[in-house]
């Protein structure tokens, strides 16, 4: 067993440059939650199968549990905390509230980030495309129905 290193990482998180001290064995998820104090991204499985830790890294959807913190030097990260602009909720956030697309809410940050990545890529996805895209995000409460409707509604809102 070798000891890990302390590393200093600087990255832009939700538009703000942040520098933090990490262990070289921290994942981005661990760094966000335990070193930086941004706990919106959640740990559900820690191996890329539930999507609760979804964040955008340089505009690309990733599981933050499968990114090493050390890899983030110079990266641009968006978490659920960066979705709203000031008091203005993102249309996806509003749609999730209005459509009752959350019950316990633990998967919601991941679904919001993943849905944002979808709508950034394709503003007018079909139900099938939404379901396929979101298949990496598990929800155990809703049966997905209201989540799919919320994404459809937000997409419509964002197109108009």
């Amino acid at each position: 067993m070798t000891t890990d290193e302390r590393i200093v990482v600087t990255a832009t998180i939700n538009g703000e440059e942040r520098t933090w001290l990490s262990s070289s064995r921290d994942s981005l998820l661990e760094a966000l939650r335990e070193r930086i104090g941004l706990t919106g991204a959640k740990e559900g499985c820690n191996n890329g199968n539930c999507g609760a830790c979804s964040v955008l890294m340089d505009g690309r959807l990733v599981n933050s549990c499968l990114v090493m913190a050390a890899e983030c030097e110079g990266a641009n990260i968006t978490t659920v905390e960066g979705l709203a602009e000031g008091d203005e909720l993102h249309p996806l956030q509003t749609a999730f509230l209005e459509e009752a697309a959350l019950q316990c809410g633990i998967c919601t940050p991941g679904f919001l980030i993943s849905s944002k990545a979808l709508l950034d890529w394709k503003p007018n996805p079909s139900e099938e495309e939404i379901r396929f895209w979101l298949a990496g995000n598990l929800c155990r409460c809703t049966g997905y129905d209201k989540i799919i409707r919320a994404v459809e509604k937000a997409a419509e809102e964002m197109r108009s």
Binding site: R33, K42, V80, L83, F96, L102, I106, T108, P109
Partner: peptide
């Protein structure tokens, strides 16, 4: 069908779940 009182915290990542504590 109003918006739930804890809704905004849960869509902005502010809601504190058990493992979020420090």
């Amino acid at each position: 069908r109003p918006v739930r009182p804890d809704g905004v915290d849960k869509v902005t990542g502010r809601a504190e779940y058990g493992a979020d504590i420090k």
